[in-house]
Write a protein that binds this DNA or RNA. Structure first.
Length: 387
DNA sequence: TATGCCGGGGA
DNA sequence: TCCCCGGCATA
């Protein structure tokens, strides 16, 4: 954005020792250096120095010309009274038009609407913000017109480094960067980080049905999907027993670390979060045996990029007691989810819990290692003192 | 930190 | 297959 305002950008260096030498630009002299930037510095100087009140001059000049016209007309034309009043009516119209025109071009009038409705490009350019606040480190900032009366208004305290990556794209960026001035100030200069963090996690709901993996943004949507597509129920959620709760999972996408979270979670991508195979291996009565644990967890854990997203486990236990018949699966899924949150190495292995009983090591001690069972010597599961 | 033991590698 | 060990999970 500094391309056509290079001189102005340099001139914006307030504290640098080379101010006025870097490019030979002093603030306030920018208008004479770049033909393309004549309007912005003019507005810039408008309040600060009072030297260049071009819009108001124009306004005054217009009114003066109008007055002269009126005088000329009224004096040079000797018309009948009726004709004269008609002339006056015309002149009144012209006057009104001129006044309106002048008012509409006056920056004092235009500024407030600029703050609300205009985009950033028009804002600073037309007087809403000044290019003089372009910092020496090369980042745009701005100040409200009311601040322009103080030439020494310091730059915002926020370091420009943290501000640049977010601010610059906004000039041509998405609409949500089109923030109003106050919001922008608070966002950019006060606490931008919490705001960003707030938006950095995106909660999605992923269907766990085999070969589906559909991802929806709402729980209701995924429930409806499961109910209608997989469970074959065409009724509303009223007739649901909540079984669909077990066929989707809630995932949190960290949009900070995932460049394009949804692209990696394409509904047709089975590599990200494979639906639990155990789902289709449900026993006829709808329950799942623990024997499905291995077949369920292994493919999930091996393929899940657990570093990229977190699996929210809360609703895994939100099932009402009426879901007790699927509790086995609930437990299985909770284990699956835990696996997803773990490093890939630990996944897939259902490491049996550490035995409580004394093992050869404890019984015989390290000094009597030759008395250990073979398994213990080999650091395998003890065969002598089996739990 | 100590212990149990899985997974993997070398012989 | 035997043997050993790195490394992880758990108490």
């Amino acid at each position: 954005m500094c391309f056509s305002l290079q001189s102005t950008c340099n001139g914006g260096q307030r504290d640098g020792p080379t101010q006025g030498q870097n490019g030979g630009v002093q603030r306030g002299e920018a208008p004479s250096l770049s033909p393309e930037s004549t309007e912005e510095p003019r507005v810039l100087e408008h309040k600060r120095t009072g030297r260049a009140l071009e819009p108001e001059k124009d306004h005054t000049r217009s009114v003066s010309l109008l007055e002269q016209k009126r005088k000329v007309v009224s004096s040079s034309i000797d018309v009948p009274q009726a004709r004269k009043s008609e002339e006056e009516v015309d002149m009144d119209k012209v006057t009104a038009a001129m006044v309106l025109t002048s008012l509409s071009t006056s920056p004092l009038v235009r500024s407030p609407p600029v703050k609300v409705s205009e985009g950033l490009n028009g804002s600073w350019k037309d007087g809403g913000f000044t290019p003089s606040s372009y910092s020496s480190s090369g980042y745009w900032s701005w100040s409200a017109p009311s601040d322009q009366s103080n030439p020494s208004t310091p730059s915002p305290p926020l370091s420009a480094d943290s501000f640049k990556p977010f601010r610059m794209p906004s000039l041509s960026g998405p609409p949500d960067d089109n923030i109003d001035e106050h919001d922008g100030n608070s966002l950019l200069f006060d606490e931008p980080i919490p705001r960003k963090r707030k938006n950095s996690m995106k909660v999605m709901f992923k269907c766990l049905w085999k070969n589906c993996g559909k991802v929806l943004s709402t729980a209701a949507g995924i429930q409806r999907h499961i109910r209608t597509v997989h469970l074959g129920r065409n009724c509303d959620s009223e007739c649901s027993d909540g079984e669909e709760d077990f066929y989707y999972t809630e995932i949190k996408l960290n949009t900070d670390s995932v460049a394009d979270g949804l692209s990696s979670l394409s509904p047709v991508s089975p590599s990200v979060l494979s639906p639990p195979l155990g789902l289709d291996q449900r026993q006829p009565d709808g329950t799942n045996g623990a024997k499905n644990e291995n077949s369920t967890t292994t493919p999930l854990s091996r393929s899940a990029p657990s570093a990229l997203y977190l699996v929210h486990t809360d609703h895994a236990y939100q099932a009402s007691p009426t879901h007790s018949r699927t509790q086995g699966f609930g437990e299985q899924r909770s284990q699956t989810i835990a696996v997803l949150s773990s490093p890939p190495r630990a996944a897939g292995s259902l490491r049996k819990s550490r035995g409580e009983g004394k093992k050869c090591r404890k019984v015989y001690g390290m000094e009597n290692r030759d008395m250990w069972c073979t398994a213990c010597r080999w650091k395998k599961a003890c065969q002598r003192f089996v739990d």
